[in-house]
Simulated assay, not measured.
Amino acid sequence: MRWTSAVAIYFLFWAMSVFLVLPFGVRTHEEAGARRVPGQADSAPHEFRPWLIARRVTIVATVLFALFLLNYYAGWITPEMFMITNV
C-alpha cells in the first residue's frame, strides 16, 4: 500500500470516528446545573472542548486504522470470504 493511500484511509477513519466519539461526554446546561443563555437550545452542550474531542477521535481512529492495516497485511478477512458461489 502506498503511503498516500494509507494517509487517505486514515483520514477517512478519522472523519468516521468523529461521529462515533462526539456524543460521548456531552452534558447539557441542565445536567451541569448551569443557567442557559436566553434563546439557547435545550440540547446545547454546557462546555465544548474541541481539543479533547480531537484527541479522543485521534485515539479511536488510530486504533481502528491499526486494525485495518494489520488485516490488510495478515489477510484475516478477505473479499473472497464474502463471495457467494453457486451451489
Rank of each mutant, 00 (worst) to 15 (best):
Arg55Asp: 02
Met16Gly: 11
Arg49Glu: 11
Ala44Met: 12
Val21Phe: 02
Arg36Lys: 14
Ile59His: 02
Phe68His: 12
Leu52Lys: 02
Gln40Trp: 11
Leu64Gly: 14
Glu31Tyr: 09
Val60Lys: 08
Trp51Phe: 06
Ser43Tyr: 13
Asn86Lys: 15
Pro79Leu: 08
Leu20Tyr: 07
Phe11Thr: 02
Phe82Ala: 10
Leu67Cys: 14
His29Thr: 12
Tyr73Ile: 04
His46Ser: 11
Leu22Thr: 13
Trp76Gln: 07
Thr28Arg: 06
Phe19Tyr: 13
Gly75Val: 09
Thr58Tyr: 03
Ala34Cys: 01
Ala8Cys: 05
Ala32Ser: 10
Leu22Arg: 15
Trp14His: 02
Gly33Asp: 10
Thr78His: 04
Gly33Val: 07
Ala34Tyr: 04
Asn71Ala: 07
His29Val: 13
Ala15Lys: 01
Pro38His: 04
Thr85Val: 10
Ala32Asp: 03
Phe48Arg: 08
Arg49His: 13
Val60Thr: 11
Ala74Gly: 15
Gly75Met: 05
Ile59Cys: 02
Asn71Lys: 08
Trp14Ile: 00
Thr28Leu: 08
Thr85Trp: 08
Leu12Asp: 03
Met81Asp: 15
Thr78Pro: 00
Tyr73Asn: 04
Thr85Phe: 12
Phe11Asp: 01
Leu67Arg: 14
Ala15Phe: 01
Tyr72Asn: 09
Tyr73Phe: 08
Phe19Ala: 11
Tyr10Thr: 03
Pro50Val: 09
Tyr10Asp: 01
Ser17Lys: 01
Leu20Ile: 11
Trp3Lys: 13
Ala54Leu: 11
Thr4Leu: 05
Leu52Trp: 03
Arg2Leu: 11
Thr28Tyr: 06
Ala34Lys: 07
Tyr10Ala: 03
Ala32Phe: 08
Phe11Lys: 05
His29Gln: 11
Thr62Phe: 00
Ser5Val: 07
